[in-house]
Each structure stands twice: as C-alpha cells, then as structure tokens.
C-alpha cells in the first residue's frame, strides 16, 4: 500500500509533527488516528495501514490501539457526532429522556447514523459538567442544562436530518 497516496500531505505532515513530541514515533498513534479522523470523519482500514507504516507499527498493533479507544471511529460516522452523557448525574437528571427525544427526532438509536449522514448518536461517559446536567456534546461543543425543548433548537443549528420516519 502506498502510504503517500492514501494520506494527504497535510495529514502526513501533521502526524509527523505530532510524532516529534515523543522519543518514539509510535507514541503518536492515537494522535495520528485523530488527525486522520479530523479530515475523514473516521479511520478506514487503508488509512489505518498507512498510518501504521508512517509510525513504523504493524497494522495489527495500531488497530489494537485504535479499537481500544472509544473516540477513534473504525466505522463511518455522520457529519455531526452527538455524544449523550449517560453517567450518573446526567442519568439522574433525565439523560434518558434527552436521548429518547434525540432518537425520536433523528430516527436513529445509539450507535446509529442518520440516513443522510448528518448525525451519529453515541453514548459518552461523564463529560465533567455534572453541575449542569444533563449535558450533550455535538462535535467539539458542550451543551449544558439540556432539556427537551433545547433539542429542537440544537438540531436547527446543525441542520435538520432527513429521515424517512
């Protein structure tokens, strides 16, 4: 597999720059996968093999790492990944209702992606905002004190998903 052809110059440069922070290239594995994900949304087998080559790891070794971390996506995800906190404080303050509402509005369950590829719904552990529970994260944005009414607003901001409900 020709690494250069799979990874863009930009990706390669960023990965190598990240690797500079460590005495050992393979330490940048997680960061490299996140860089790939930043550009592609997820990490395909081919991309993973290329990253492995760049970091002098075997694909097996790198995939062992990739599949360990829940924020590395080895399957395609939607444009907007919605992370619903399901840990104790949010749960206590109605996270289930929020999640159900989202499911209903998007027509997908946890772990699924809308047919138009706009949203993926995933559970996430405590987001460190328990005093503002329940909370959600969409992309890199944290949404606190979420209630059902806010969900409509939120989906307007990111664009309504097309569903065949």
């Amino acid at each position: 597999m020709n690494e250069a052809r799979i990874l863009s110059e930009q990706e390669t440069a960023e990965i190598l720059a990240a690797a500079d922070h460590y005495p050992d290239k393979s330490a940048a594995s997680v960061e490299a996968l996140k860089i790939v994900q930043k550009y592609r949304g997820w990490v395909s087998d081919d991309a993973l093999k290329s990253v492995a080559g760049l970091l002098k790891m075997s694909p097996d070794e790198l995939d062992g790492v990739a599949t360990f971390y829940n924020l590395i996506f080895r399957k395609p995800v939607g444009e907007n990944v919605i992370l619903c906190c399901d840990s104790v404080s949010c749960w206590m303050l109605g996270a289930d209702r929020i999640r159900e509402r989202l499911s209903e509005r998007l027509g997908i369950g946890l772990g699924e992606t809308t047919a138009d590829g706009r949203y993926t719904l995933l559970p996430i552990v405590c987001l460190g905002a328990c005093d503002r529970a329940p909370v959600l994260m969409v992309g890199e944005e944290l949404y606190e004190d979420v209630d059902e009414s806010k969900i409509d607003e939120l989906l307007k901001r990111y664009g309504e998903a097309w569903t065949n409900r």
Binding site: V88, C126, G128, C130
Partner: peptide
Amino acid sequence: EMEPGTFKDR
C-alpha cells in the same frame, strides 16, 4: 478527568 460526578479539573 472522567470519574462520574467529577468536574473540577476542567
């Protein structure tokens, strides 16, 4: 920081 209920270091 990921312990459920913890939100101080952030």
